[in-house]
Nucleic acid binder design. Sequence first.
DNA 1: CTATACTTTCAGCACACACTGAAAAGGAGC
DNA 2: GCTCCTTTTCAGTGTGTGCTGAAAGTATAG
Lengths: 221, 221
Amino acid sequence: MNLESNQNKLSHSDDLGGSTMSPSVASIGSNETTGPVMPTGSALQQLRAVQDLFIRRWGEMGQTWGINRTMAEIHALLFITAQPLCTDDVMDRLNISRGNASMSLRALCDWGIIRRMHRRGERREYFESLSDVWEMFSIIAAERKRREMDPVLETIKQCQRMLEEPAIGKAAAKQETVLATRNRLASMEEFMELTNKIFQSFIVNAKSGLTRVVKVLLKNL
Amino acid sequence: MNLESNQNKLSHSDDLGGSTMSPSVASIGSNETTGPVMPTGSALQQLRAVQDLFIRRWGEMGQTWGINRTMAEIHALLFITAQPLCTDDVMDRLNISRGNASMSLRALCDWGIIRRMHRRGERREYFESLSDVWEMFSIIAAERKRREMDPVLETIKQCQRMLEEPAIGKAAAKQETVLATRNRLASMEEFMELTNKIFQSFIVNAKSGLTRVVKVLLKNL
DNA sequence: CTATACTTTCAGCACACACTGAAAAGGAGC
DNA sequence: GCTCCTTTTCAGTGTGTGCTGAAAGTATAG
């Protein structure tokens, strides 16, 4: 019953090097324009090549934005596949261990950008990505704002309080260095407050609002 | 001559734990409101506490956004200090090695968010942070867009091309799975194209434009 | 209840990355 | 030329993070 997922496990295991170099090579052999020239098998290969390419790039990007590569890859896989996959599918496709797959899938569920799914009469659980890109990034933006921007803003405010008169005295509060520091803090605070608002609108508006916003932005360019 | 930077090296070396817990404790001992009650030395201590707090938080944030902690800390130090510091100052203040300081400072210079500075009649080099927060983030946004978003967008377009008729044939191009994949790719592309534009306006507009943009955003909330 | 199907946990391992410190290179002044 | 001061480089090391795989846990069916 769970063998079905192993059937797909061709020898694509470690072709990372190859397809990084020239993924378009995968389409070699197909005629240029006409009819149903490509046999079904070949089209499947091509689809697989596309998925691999997308998954790899998405993983790389994730890494530079502070997201675990494997998690990003799993998400990319579920997104691009556009249908629910079970743990074994993910393991086999990305060549990762059961433990890793389980933990990463759970983390993605916790973020809320993939969902668990049951199939009638089946015991195992399936996972699928949210399909709405805007919703996904809304969720991510909200979470990262909460976890990473809000604390910084709070800290800056705390720093300001620590340098106010009541805390350090009138004379000290007028010292050159103190004033300079407070200036720097103030401009950083202003900046982060504004960035926060942009995030906020990202979160609240999702697609409809953002598209409108971009129109306005473009006028100003 | 370079001893001056060591003179400041109090025993603040490893107070990380302590001030993480309760930084505001540093202001204990000052009276609440009146006059020049706090002796100058104490005010300096307070300033130091503020700087340490800011530096630590900035470093933490950097890490979660894919920026080396030490680099973020160095930048925070130069920004909050609001005056040029030399390599030894940085080493001593952050307790890092000469090699580390040298490499990180160079990297920050390469990014363009700090600048080298010579002082008349002095041999050693000083470094200072850009003072304009908006300019700094403009630079960062431009670079990250170029390095991390553009390649992904390019990949998505390539994926689309790999699934077009000329590449896989007419019949294959009509298959369910192929169509589903192309749909996903299309919505991701649309999203990234839009995000790119937002970044672009970030880059081009800096403060003046952004403030305007936020006003627009807020109306739409 | 046991057997089976599937998921989660986590100790131990492996690897990538950041950091150190000493040696080499650079360059200003004598 | 040599000396002195400073920066850069990089081999070696240490640490944190992510991954594995087997063992423990959970749930359903019989």
